[in-house]
Structure formats: structure tokens, C-alpha cells
Computed example of a mutant assay.
Amino acid sequence: MNQRIAAVLLVLVTVFAGVPAPVAADHDGQCSFPMTVTDATGTEVTMSEDPERVVTTNPSAAQTMWEIGAKDEVVGVSQFAQYLDGASEKANVSGSGGLSVEAVIGLEPDVVLVPNTTYTVEKDRIAQLRDAGLTVVVFESGDSLEAVADKVERIGRITGNCEAGTERADEMRTSIENMERALEDVERPVGLNVFFGYAAGGETFISEIMTTGGLRNGAAEAGFTGFGEINEELVVEMNPEYLVVPSHAPIPSSPAYNSTTAIEEGNVVVVDANNLQQPAPRAIDASETILKAVHPDAYERYQELQNQSETTETTTTTSETTTATPETTAGEQDATATADDPQTTESSAPGFSAVAAVVALALTAFVGRRL
């Protein structure tokens, strides 16, 4: 197994391990600057002005900036964000041994967005950025789709894109609600997310991607929490009816997996890894992919509900624009832009074996930047 596959195999060891307890954000209730927030490390971070130069150390943060229409503000991305349209035009802040502190400092960013995966494996380098006087915000682990939506709003606020962040987060919430409505009274088969012998259990955003898409997470129901190696005996006992596999991973093939209903009936859902394995807005696309494959009739109903939601939103916006005075409209926009509930999410430990943890530490120079 080459180094890249080994790194992908162990990448989730670090996603939920060693992350500081998330802290509620201190917001002043306005999308205005100066702004002070408390990040996941408990550090109070102040942005004196609306940031114009943003560095993202991880593809999930970059994807979020792209999804809220703020990619022009991004001056630096990691090597794993190159799938984003236009990312190749940005400076690469990844070095041969991990995050390049020199590259980040050289870009003179107004703010550096650090998802928990980067912080977990590169605490010393993040400390160096802070020691150099850079404004750094570390984010909580996204262990649910709601936590991901909250993070989208928070990134919008921190980067001066409040309205766009709130709008994109609300779109996510609407999609989740419409999928839930489309799946009412629909029987959900047992599914298993598997990649290189590892699986996503309960208390993970991938688990919610699966359940939102109309599956039961067999690993979670078996008491499997976080991310970790999946025992093939458990796979046989679970007998998943569907396998959910990220696009960069092979479909598992062994006597244990071949005996499952999923393999016997060809029920393997391959999902774009950049949607499935990043706690960012396109996680909703991963749920849609699963829903379409597992419940095609419910997917059609979901599409109808989505169209109705879009029509309602358009009608409401048009009505408000037509009837509201300029002062009222501005006030409504301010209220929308400033709506933000302080969030507190919890990290979950994957429960890897000691051997896996040791191997993970050996690969930390490569690992934490893939998700």
C-alpha cells in the first residue's frame, strides 16, 4: 500500500483525536468590525477590519468560501483544495512536511481559517502563525450536518460575508428538511460507510449524511462511534444492504464483504469523496446521491419539495422587495445577516487501537490535510 493510500486510510484518526473542547462563540450580534470571537482552542480572536485576504489551511474551509461566493477573497489554499474551480490560481500553502508556515506568513493574510483537522496534527505550526502576529481562527469538529451549517454561518460572519453565509446555511437546512419530508414513512435499509477497512460510526457528520439520505447507519447501531477500523466479523453480523464508498477508495472485496446483501445485490453507492468526507456545504450533495440511489421515488418527491421551496423563497423575496420601504428592507437584511446562535459541538474519539494511533502519528506530516 503506497503512502497516499495509507494516509487516507488513517486520516480520520486525527479528525476527532486531540481536538480541544469546542467553545461557544462570542458574537456582538452584528456583522460589523471590529469583531471578537472565541475559537475552538478557547482563544479570543479579534478581527479589526473586514478581512480582504483569507488563507484556508484545509479543503473544507476552502470549499465553504467557494460556496458562499467568497473565493476571490482567498489568497492561499492547501494542495487538497485543487479540485475547486480556480483553486489552481491561488497560492499553495502546503509544504513537503505539512502546512508551510513560511508560505502562509508570506501571503500576509488578514485571517487564517484552520479546521480542526489541521489543528489536530499541526498545533506547533498554528502556534507559529499566531506568534508571527497572524489572526488565526480554529474551528470545531463538524460531527453533524447542523454543526456544518453553523460553521458555514460562522465563516461567513468572520470573513464579512454574513448574508451569504446565512443564506447558504439556510439552503442546507432546507434541503435536510425536504429530504426528511420526502422520506416520511419510507423504510430505511442498513448501510455502511467503508473506506480502506475503516468506517464512520455514530456522532460523525458522515453518519448524518447517510441517515439524511435514507439509510440506517449499521455501524452506529452496532455501538461503533467516531471513525475507526471495522471488524469484518461485525460486517458479517451487520449484513449491510448498502455500502457507501468514497470515490477515491476501492470497493471492498473479501469473503466477509462478498457475503453481504450489499455486494450480492450490487448495492454500492459511490459518492464523490470531496462531498462525502468534508464537513462543508457539499455534504448535502452526498446525501442527495445516496437518496437518489437508495430511494429513487423519494428522491423525485425531494426534488419537488426543493422546487417548491425555491418558488416560495423567490415569491417572498419579490413581495418584500415590492412592499417594503427602503428603510424596512435594510433593517430586515440586517436582521437576517446578524442572526447567529452560539454553537457548541462535541468532539468524539474514534477509539482506534494503539497500533493504529502510532502509525497515525508517523503519518501526521501528510494526514490532516485531506479532509
Rank of each mutant, 00 (worst) to 15 (best):
T212R: 11
Q30T: 12
G331T: 14
A81K: 00
T311D: 11
T322D: 14
G95S: 06
A169E: 02
G351Q: 04
K71L: 05
A324W: 05
G29T: 02
A200H: 06
R216D: 07
E221L: 09
A357V: 11
T174H: 09
S100T: 06
L192N: 09
T261K: 10
N239M: 05
F227V: 12
G214V: 03
Q128S: 13
T57W: 00
A61Q: 01
D28Q: 05
E52V: 03
L243Y: 02
A360N: 06
T312R: 14
T321R: 14
G142N: 13
N307I: 15
A62E: 01
R157D: 03
E89M: 09
E203Q: 09
S259I: 07
D39W: 04
S96T: 13
A354C: 09
D85N: 10
P51M: 00
L134S: 04
T135W: 06
S207M: 15
T204Q: 05
E203L: 13
P279W: 12
E332W: 13
D28A: 01
T261D: 11
N307C: 11
E167Q: 05
S348N: 05
G331V: 15
Q278V: 10
Q63R: 14
A324L: 15
D170R: 07
N193I: 09
M210G: 06
P252Y: 04
V194I: 06
N274F: 00
A61R: 01
E327M: 04
E310M: 13
E89H: 08
R369P: 12
E265N: 12
S287R: 02
E233Q: 04
G156T: 00
S175G: 11
R370V: 14
T204D: 03
T344R: 13
L9M: 14
I68C: 04
V23H: 08
A87G: 03
Q82W: 10
S247Q: 02
V137T: 03
V152E: 02
F195H: 12
T317E: 14
T323A: 09
G191Q: 10
E102M: 00
C31D: 06
M210W: 01
E237T: 11
L10I: 08
V269T: 09
E67D: 09
A324M: 07
G42K: 04
T345K: 00
N307H: 15
G228F: 04
F80V: 11
T317P: 11
E208C: 13
